[in-house]
Amino acid sequence: MEVRTIKVFTTVDNINLHTQVVDMSMTYGQQFGPTYLDGADVTKIKPHNSHEGKTFYVLPNDDTLRVEAFEYYHTTDPSFLGRYMSALNHTKKWKYPQVNGLTSIKWADNNCYLATALLTLQQIELKFNPPALQDAYYRARAGEAANFCALILAYCNKTVGELGDVRETMSYLFQHANLDSCKRVLNVVCKTCGQQQTTLKGVEAVMYMGTLSYEQFKKGVQIPCTCGKQATKYLVQQESPFVMMSAPPAQYELKHGTFTCASEYTGNYQCGHYKHITSKETLYCIDGALLTKSSEYKGPITDVFYKENSYTTTIK
């Protein structure tokens, strides 16, 4: 009895394709271990004539594949690729409408935090270190965002349907971005203890939790000093293409032309909904596939993004 075979390709990165001759009487799992086709788990399936010449994702289970996976995804987590594939199996079914010149995501599976993050990423200057993220990001900007969303979920250790947080998501993504040249110098002034300067680099240099107003941050924000008295913390120097200011959701007025974009969060910790506000020729609110415009805006804002380049204080 002759062994019926077909020729397929296996890959971990969709760049390096490895030619395989597979036995049609055995499952993919018996031949390769966990195997995925377009995100779908085909591990328990036997090869079919229609699979001839198709590319299958496999887990990096030998040295060659491990090197290829690390170079593309910059992670050695053995569960990463499987999590990416199972997320992709959902995100490829989502709709990605162009809204006001940006790629958004039609609401499904509690994905409003991903839509808000995706919209924000198209408006701030950011370059990702893992080629996987950078490639998928370019495709997302062009309207094909399924891979990018699935990668975000995998890097953030999230599953489809789980509630997510924009600030946490951005923080994970910033860790995989090139923020080497970003720098922030802060000064804390206390009447009792004097003053202390701190220099922050990388992710810490672009994120701040405690106030939404970048102007206020430049002037000074009140913080408790270690001595128990009130101290003032203010920005001395900022070198970065953008800054992200966050605070627990509270009524906040966004003035046209003073910011790049913002995240609105309605609801409580267990259950809520994100919308995205962007400042173009007027203010726009993007909620999944829905767009509304207004000249002014007041609502429960939790993150505001500002364009920056270089700032030095005039406070002496």
Rank of each mutant, 00 (worst) to 15 (best):
N111A: 03
A108E: 11
T75F: 09
D109L: 05
A146Q: 10
F242V: 04
A142H: 14
P97L: 13
H90E: 11
F217V: 12
D165A: 14
E281W: 08
A250R: 11
T232D: 01
K201N: 12
G143L: 04
D63S: 10
F217G: 03
K298E: 14
K293W: 04
S79I: 09
T5P: 11
I15R: 15
K106P: 08
K316V: 15
C156A: 04
Q20F: 10
L133W: 02
L88I: 02
Y28R: 12
L81I: 15
G164P: 05
G210F: 05
Y72N: 10
G299S: 01
T10Y: 11
T91N: 04
K307Y: 07
N61S: 12
L81G: 07
L186F: 13
A87Y: 02
H256T: 08
Y73N: 05
V42Q: 09
M170R: 00
S86N: 14
L283S: 04
C193I: 06
A247Y: 05
A40S: 14
S79W: 09
L114Q: 04
L290K: 14
A132E: 00
G164D: 05
M245C: 14
H256W: 09
L88N: 02
C261Q: 02
Q222V: 10
F80S: 01
G267N: 15
T55A: 11
F32H: 13
L163T: 13
T159F: 08
A289F: 06
A142V: 13
Y208H: 11
T19C: 13
Y113R: 06
S104Y: 06
G257I: 01
P241C: 01
V58S: 06
K255H: 07
C182G: 12
P241T: 06
F128S: 04
T282P: 03
L126R: 06
N89V: 12
E253N: 10
Q238T: 03
Y269C: 15
P60K: 00
C261D: 02
D13I: 03
T11Q: 09
K233V: 13
T302Y: 02
I223D: 04
H176T: 02
E168S: 15
N147S: 08
W94G: 05
N100K: 13
M209C: 15
V67P: 03
E2D: 13
C149V: 13
Y72I: 07
G202Q: 05
L254E: 07
K316N: 15
K106S: 13
L118V: 07
G202S: 01
K233H: 08
N49Q: 15
N157M: 09
G164I: 04
T5K: 15
L102I: 08
L118C: 09
F32W: 15
Y96R: 07
D41E: 14
N16V: 01
L179Q: 06
S181Q: 15
S240D: 01
E162N: 01
E168L: 15
K7D: 10
I105C: 00
T260E: 08
A262G: 00
H90R: 10
Y73Q: 03
V236C: 04
M170T: 01
Y172Q: 13
T198Y: 14
P34I: 00
N178F: 04
T11E: 11
Y137L: 11
G101W: 01
W107F: 06
I6D: 09
V203R: 12
T292E: 09
T226G: 13
S25Y: 06
G267Q: 15
L81T: 10
Y214T: 00
T91S: 02
V22D: 01
Y269V: 15
T199L: 06
Y36W: 13
G161W: 00
Y155I: 03
A150E: 11
S171V: 09
P34A: 15
V188N: 01
T76M: 14
L59M: 13
F174G: 02
S246I: 05
C149N: 00
E296F: 14
Q134W: 05
Y306D: 04
Y155Q: 08
T27G: 07
E308V: 10
S213Y: 06
R167W: 01
F242D: 01
F80Q: 04
G39L: 06
D135Q: 12
G194T: 06
F80I: 01
T27L: 09
E281V: 03
G257C: 01
R66L: 11
G33M: 03
Q195F: 07
T211I: 13
V203K: 13
F259P: 05
F242S: 01
H51K: 01
T35S: 13
Y96V: 07
G202R: 04
E281D: 13
G267E: 15
T292I: 10
K93I: 13
Y214W: 07
F56M: 12
Q134P: 01
T169R: 03
Q238C: 04
M209Q: 15
T278W: 03
N178K: 11
S295W: 11
I105N: 06
M245K: 01
E162S: 08
K219D: 08
M245G: 01
N61G: 06
C193N: 03
I223G: 14
Y284K: 01
S104I: 08
T314M: 14
Q216M: 07
Q270R: 08
C149S: 07
E52W: 12
S240L: 01
P224G: 09
E204H: 07
G299Q: 01
A69C: 15
I223T: 10
K183E: 05
T103W: 04
S240K: 02
Y137D: 01
T211F: 08
R139M: 13
L179F: 15
A115W: 04
F148H: 04
A69G: 08
D38H: 12
T116C: 15
A69N: 09
N309C: 13
V185H: 03
H74Y: 04
G33H: 04
A250Y: 10
N309F: 08
C285W: 11
D63T: 08
H48S: 11
F70G: 07
S79A: 10
C271R: 13
N129P: 05
L173Q: 03
K158G: 03
V206K: 00
M26R: 15
R83A: 09
L153G: 08
F128T: 02
C225R: 02
D135H: 10
T313G: 10
Y57G: 06
L114M: 10
S240G: 04
Q98F: 01
S213F: 03
A136C: 03
Y137S: 04
L212K: 02
F259L: 04
N16S: 09
T103L: 04
L290P: 03
K316W: 15
K233T: 12
G194L: 02
N49L: 14
R66H: 13
N49W: 06
T313M: 15
N147T: 10
L153P: 04
A115D: 02
D41L: 09
H276E: 04
S294C: 13
A145D: 03
V243N: 05
A154S: 09
D13G: 09
G101D: 08
P97Y: 06
L290N: 14
I286H: 07
K233M: 15
E2I: 09
Y172I: 15
T282R: 08
D135R: 06
L37S: 12
H48Y: 10
D13V: 11
C149L: 08
Y269K: 15
Y137R: 03
T116F: 08
V236Q: 01
N129R: 14
F80H: 08
P131N: 00
L102W: 15
T43P: 05
T192H: 12
P78F: 10
N16P: 07
S25F: 13
I15F: 13
Y234H: 05
T55I: 13
M209V: 15
G228D: 03
G29H: 09
H176A: 03
Q270C: 15
G267A: 15
T266F: 08
P130L: 03
